[in-house]
Design a protein around this nucleic acid. Sequence first.
DNA 1: GCGACAG
DNA 2: ATCTTGTCGC
Length: 245
Amino acid sequence: MDYAAGAGTGARPQAGGAGGPGPPGLQEWPCGADEARALQERSAPLVRREAIDAGAVSLVAGLDVAYSADDDRLAAAAVVLAAPEWEVVDSATAVSRPRFPYVPGLFAFREAPALLEAVAQLGTRPDVLVCDGFGLAHPRRFGLACHVGVALDRPVLGVGKTPFVGRAEEPGPERGAWSPLVDGGEVVGRCLRTRTGVKPVYVSVGHRVDLASAAALTLRLAPRFRLPEPVRQADRLCRDRLAGV
DNA sequence: GCGACAG
DNA sequence: ATCTTGTCGC
């Protein structure tokens, strides 16, 4: 589960595991922004779109990260929910320090290591994982959800709260209404209304799902609130973890 | 060149 | 992301 295609092009493999410079399972780790962007460009072709039956999905993990206000700690959470009521059946957290500065477009290098660490600690194997962020709706078509999906080689989708790249027309006011998110002439995601009369969310493919499946599942995961339930639960858990709760 | 820019 | 409580509306 390399991040990059063509390992052996000169980048030096890093030791994974807790305390290591890179996240578990990564063969390469960028030293700077330019190297990180190059890594994303090389990795983008690894993303696969696969149709899944959103109605048949029974275990979904939500992933999110929270940052400490007073020190440089960061907490990642992975929470697994079960259909049809989406009750929490498993969860794990990982606390660490950011291994990369925040740069729009390079978000994954900050959050993915801790998220993968949390996922690795789960005692459950979710059918699909949902990231708080984007997948293909990214300048280089390799956002956080793609990083996580390719690293795990599991179905992952991203749900963002604000648009990052692309443009979408305002969807109809009803829950379920949507419009394509278009960037550079291609559809990179979907603007989806999960609650009638409430600001829409932005869904995109991370890995091993297709856009229609990702949107259908997102709608099913958000029967009552704007954000999918797994993401809400993960958001709450990582925040509590930092607060010492 | 300038502004915008996931969390 | 985080600094930040209550309040208005459905």
